[in-house]
């Protein structure tokens, strides 16, 4: 379980996050949603430790990340997996080498076992046969899948995804969403997904946190979004005519 308590972050005196509190449970796809520039990426980076919050606590199963020493942080890193917005694959390495990388650095298994694990992860994301290709030789969707395989190579307890569907077509987005959901359930991971893709939210979101201008304005289930009276949330989620129609249909069904 991941517990965020009273988190504050400012850059050059400008407050980006203000008193954020949230609990992310294992086995669930937890989603942080909000407009571009709302502070969700900063929040995710504070959670994983790429930014250091000015105030507040990030508790990984009651272990305070802010108070960990170098050794403890290093141990925690092995429990974290992250899928970056641009995949962040190492250009100079092949697909297989990318997935092998965390194993080569930290696994105590023999090389054969490490290779088997990497191949298993690649198979899990349906990328068997692409091992020898370089990231520049595979599509955006495949790059995301390689990044997922690399993220799960060390069997993490926490999976973080920063806008996993950005730059992908709707069909490939569904594949990535399904993969994130399946892996979360399969390994009982605590997954936190940062997104503004409402298809993803409605498709795989179990627990939603809405951030607006650095403030957590709403949290709940995806069903709760339809009945929420929060104006900013409604303006954000139901900005398009399509989603307005979906909302009306949903509410009519509830009334019916």
């Amino acid at each position: 379980m991941l517990d965020i308590k009273n988190l504050y972050k400012a850059f050059d005196g400008k407050e980006v996050l203000h008193d954020i509190n949230a609990v992310f449970e294992p086995g669930k796809v937890n989603m942080i949603i909000g407009q571009s520039g709302s502070g969700k990426t900063v929040l995710l980076k504070c959670i994983v430790g790429l930014h250091f919050p000015d105030k507040g606590e990030v508790l990984y199963d009651n272990r305070n990340f802010m108070k960990m020493n170098k050794k403890e942080v290093k141990m925690l890193r092995r429990e974290q997996g992250m899928l970056f917005q641009g995949s962040a694959l190492f250009d100079s390495m092949t697909v297989l080498e990318n997935v092998m990388f965390p194993l080569n650095m930290f696994s105590t298994d023999k090389p054969k076992k490490r290779m088997e694990r990497a191949m298993f992860c690649l198979e899990r994301v349906n990328l068997k046969g692409a091992e020898d290709k370089y990231p520049s030789e595979v599509s955006g969707g495949m790059q995301k899948r390689v990044a997922i395989a690399r993220a799960i190579a060390l069997n993490p307890k926490y999976l973080f995804c920063d806008e996993p569907n950005s730059g992908l077509d709707p069909k490939t987005s569904l594949v990535i969403d399904a993969l994130v959901q399946d892996i979360t359930r399969e390994y009982n991971m605590t997954t936190v997904v940062n997104t503004h893709d409402m298809n993803s939210v409605m498709g795989i979101g179990d627990h939603i946190v809405f951030i607006n201008q650095g403030i957590k304005e709403w949290e709940g289930s995806k069903e709760g979004i339809f009945t929420s009276v929060n104006k900013n949330l409604n303006d954000f989620v139901f900005a398009s005519d399509l989603f307005k129609e979906v909302k009306n249909t949903h509410l009519n069904n509830l009334e019916g």
Binding site: R78, Q80, A88, P102, F106, F160
Partner: peptide
């Protein structure tokens, strides 16, 4: 800029 350094940090390197 392509977050590869962030990826290394997250991996624990």
């Amino acid at each position: 800029v392509t977050e590869q350094i962030d990826a290394l940090d997250i991996i624990g390197v």
